[in-house]
Design a protein around this nucleic acid. Structure first.
Length: 343
RNA sequence: GGCGCCGUACCCAAGUGGCUAAGGGAGCAGUCUGCAAAACUGCGAUGCGGCGGUUCGAACCCGCCCGGCGCCU
């Protein structure tokens, strides 16, 4: 059981286990959290929804009994949730763990959430559903590239970067502009100098692509055996509309379409497998370009316990290295000031 | 053994003498700062089973061969 020293706490160490869906994060995460005497802080944009358990592959009751899991089941499927809310909730859990001298341990595949937590979000206002609806409405009645044109007027730099079809990001940029009076480009520039929340060790779990795809297909089959259709039908019956962000997640989207008669059962299974493969591939692209990830490749027959051992070694040397590292700049400056004042 | 139909990318497939061989699926590569399991972008044949021939020009017409399917003996 690991207890952080004062010196460690100054550095605010944080360990994150990331990787594509179905790579085996959950199982290895539970072993590691247990060994480290800490909890699992999920970084998963789908497990936050209550009642969506099967296709989000939430940890089992058994897994949760041994190790508390946080940042799961935070909102109802029709409530808004986003990276900003995740960051705030995660920071609360992290402070609590530091108070108990425990090591915060993040496990999850939502790259944006991990980044938002470690590096913070830019100082832009949160999303405003009413304003978005208004912008979408305007776009609907004007010509095709209207919103992109509007963005080009106020933030030509970002407009050049965004494809005219990329409505989601164009609307976000216009939203920030309207709400704060500043261009999103400016807000981003300012954020680049922001201090990180913690000293992170980010471990990326990797598998051979073919092996990963095979695991994905097997996992989708178990979702259906575990009642994905029934769960989706139940959510729809409770009035959770297919247009909700939560219902657009993998599994619920395909099954809802099947239940609506869009295609047959076999096609729903086929599409969910395919879409999950595509998703895993996008996750790999995201994490591949994220700097400072330590990659660990899992061989197919390798047991989770043996992978956990390897990762434990990485975590121990990370903590040992922090011990020898001078305090972060902000704290060093404070010590320096004190010396000057004293002298 | 004979006759007929067919062979275009990993898969399906359009094209049946003249732009640079449609399209779809799968796959690959990428973007991402408050919906991120979302949304968005980019990319496959110097070649049409093979070898000859006809033609200014052949995936397309002709011959032979190879492979597949069907029917007949």
């Amino acid at each position: 059981m690991l207890r952080l020293s004062d010196h460690h706490l100054v550095h605010r160490p944080l360990v994150a286990l990331v990787g594509p869906t179905a790579v085996g994060k959950t199982e290895i995460g539970v072993i590691l959290a247990q060994t480290l005497g800490t909890e699992v802080l999920a970084a998963d944009s789908r497990q936050v929804y209550r009642g969506m358990d099967v296709a989000t592959d939430k940890p089992t009751a058994e897994q949760r009994q041994g190790v508390p899991h946080r940042l799961i089941d935070l909102v109802e499927p029709d409530q808004r949730f986003n990276a900003g809310m995740y960051r705030a909730a995660a920071l609360r859990e992290i402070e609590r763990l530091y108070g108990e001298r425990r090591l915060p341990f993040i496990v999850g595949g939502t790259g944006l959430y991990v980044r938002a937590l470690v590096k913070g979000l830019c100082d832009a206002p949160p999303s405003d559903p009413a304003l978005r609806a208004e912008l979408l409405d305007q776009a609907g009645r004007r010509e095709k590239g209207y919103l992109h044109g509007e963005l080009a007027k106020v933030d030509p730099e970002l407009a050049r970067l965004l494809h005219p079809h990329d409505e989601v990001k164009i609307i976000r940029a216009l939203e920030v502009q309207r709400l704060s009076g500043r261009s999103l480009s400016d807000v981003h520039r300012e954020h680049q100098t922001a201090a990180p929340c913690c000293s992170p060790l980010i471990i990326g779990l990797m598998r051979d692509r073919q092996a990963l795809y095979k695991r994905i297909e097997q996992r989708v089959d178990t979702f259906f055996m575990n009642g994905l259709v029934q769960e989706t039908a139940g959510l729809l019956a409770r009035g959770y509309d297919r247009g909700l962000a939560s219902m657009k997640g993998l599994g619920y989207r395909q099954v809802a379409e099947f239940l609506a008669g869009g295609y047959d059962y076999m096609e729903a299974v086929r599409r969910l497998k395919r879409d999950t493969r595509h998703f895993a591939k996008r996750q790999l692209t995201w994490f591949r370009h994220e700097p400072a990830i330590v990659w660990v490749t899992v061989d197919d027959p390798q047991r989770s316990a043996s992978v956990a051992d390897t990762l434990l070694g990485l975590i121990e040397s990370f903590l040992a290295e922090l011990r020898g590292r001078p305090a972060p700049a902000a704290i060093a400056a404070r010590i320096e000031t004190r010396k000057v004042t004293a002298g």
